[in-house]
């Protein structure tokens, strides 16, 4: 069975303690974020069942929530996920072209992962950065004012980070 590391377990406990007695289910979203970070960037069934057991709720309650929110990955994703915003305000500033450029650079379509597992390209809806468009989310950060050079730089940066870590 999978479990959190001791540190994560402490953090989980700290989160659960925020809520009044008997309302521990409220910790579900934060704990799913923790689990996704801890267990390889996505939520498999054992991970979700584990969270259910921590919160003493039925597994289906976790599945219902995990499938509702778009930030939980229910399938493995590439090491770097490019989530490019395609909603109106970004479109007005050229997000369509940026998406095309990334497709061409990485030789993948939207929703696909490169064969080496390095990059996944996703299109997403407005991320609250409309004034700094076009933009994408990369991990926990936003990359804004994108243009072709910036995209090249970001791809380079990801590659060299991966090389360093290997």
């Amino acid at each position: 069975m999978i479990t959190f590391s001791e540190n994560k377990l402490k953090e989980a406990q700290r989160i659960i303690n925020r809520y009044p007695q008997g309302k521990q289910k409220s910790a579900l979203l934060p704990l799913l974020h923790l689990a996704q970070d801890e267990f390889g960037g996505w939520l498999d069934v054992p991970a979700m069942d584990y969270i259910a057991s921590l919160l003493n709720i039925e597994p289906i309650e976790v599945y219902e929530v995990a499938t509702f929110y778009s930030m939980y990955n229910l399938k493995p994703v590439g090491r770097h996920v490019f989530e490019v915003c395609q909603t109106g305000p970004c479109m007005l500033r050229g997000s369509d072209q940026i998406i095309d450029y990334i497709k061409q650079r990485l030789q993948i379509n939207v929703g696909e992962t490169t064969p080496d597992g390095m990059f996944t390209l996703k299109t997403v809806e407005c991320l609250g950065a409309c004034g700094y468009a076009p933009m994408m989310q990369l991990g926990k950060t936003f990359r804004e004012h994108l243009n072709e050079e910036k995209v090249d730089q970001i791809i380079e940066e990801c590659r060299s980070k991966a090389a360093r870590n290997n």
Binding site: I60, Y63, F68
Partner: peptide
């Protein structure tokens, strides 16, 4: 009193 199915996705 025990739920094993539910509404998934949105």
């Amino acid at each position: 009193k025990k739920r094993e199915h539910g509404v998934l996705d949105r």
